[in-house]
């Protein structure tokens, strides 16, 4: 575990010196340096990598997650970082134990580019990013109830039958296409028929009455 693999990014050693046991392990795969860090200090580590002179990972290339086929393995949130000035990459992975709530601190305050990327991971894997200002589904619709599509326990064709999927799609109400926040613009909400208003207030969206 502690042996430095050939080609490992020097940033990993610097991380070990600065964060000690929060750096769980590191590896090189296909020339990419990967470092696994503890969930509780992930935000701290990423902020350090971004702001420390000599590291300067100022560009967040990607945030994604990996759910392994072995159900006992933790789900990993993966941050692909890049230093535009130094032209080096580093992948930081945060393992999340599936028996506990899948939560990690949002990096929205470090990189605004994390906004939609974290929303997508939330949508597709159900990982909650604590501190994200607007964490809601992005590719699937708000009332999507089948689960998180990229989890390995999610079947390829979805959790519901095709008949149920069709029924729900046909039953979707027009007002379900607007969030409450959007309907509050321009007093649009007040102009809705009373039964629509009631359904919205009760949170019954996307269902045929």
């Amino acid at each position: 575990m502690t042996a430095v693999a050939p080609g490992l990014s020097p940033s990993v050693e610097a991380l070990r010196a600065a964060f000690g046991s929060a750096v769980l392990r590191s590896a090189v795969s296909c020339g990419d340096s990967i470092v696994w860090v503890d969930r509780d200090r992930a935000h701290e580590v990423l902020a350090w990598l971004k702001n420390t002179p000599g590291q300067e990972f100022n560009y967040l290339t990607d945030i994604t997650a990996v759910d392994y086929r072995d159900p006992g393995q933790p789900l990993e949130v993966s941050y692909q970082l890049r230093s535009l000035g130094r032209k080096v990459d580093l992948r930081v992975k945060v393992p999340l134990d599936k028996a506990k709530p899948l939560t990690v601190d949002s990096v929205f305050d470090l990189w605004r580019g994390a906004d939609w990327l974290e929303r997508e991971v939330f949508d597709m894997f159900g990982v909650t990013f604590a501190g994200h200002p607007d964490l809601r589904r992005i590719l699937m619709w708000d009332t999507y109830a089948e689960g998180h599509p990229l989890r390995k326990d999610f079947p390829l064709r979805g959790n519901f039958t095709r008949a149920e999927q069709t029924r729900q799609a046909l039953a979707a109400n027009p007002e379900a296409h607007y969030s409450m926040e959007e309907l509050s613009i321009a007093d649009a909400f007040n102009e809705l028929p009373d039964d629509m208003k009631r359904r919205l207030l009760e949170g019954q969206r996307g269902e045929l009455r």
Partner: peptide, 11 residues
């Protein structure tokens, strides 16, 4: 196990 597209248009 995982195929991720880093989509430039999305970002």
């Amino acid at each position: 196990v995982r195929w991720r597209i880093r989509p430039p248009s999305f970002i």
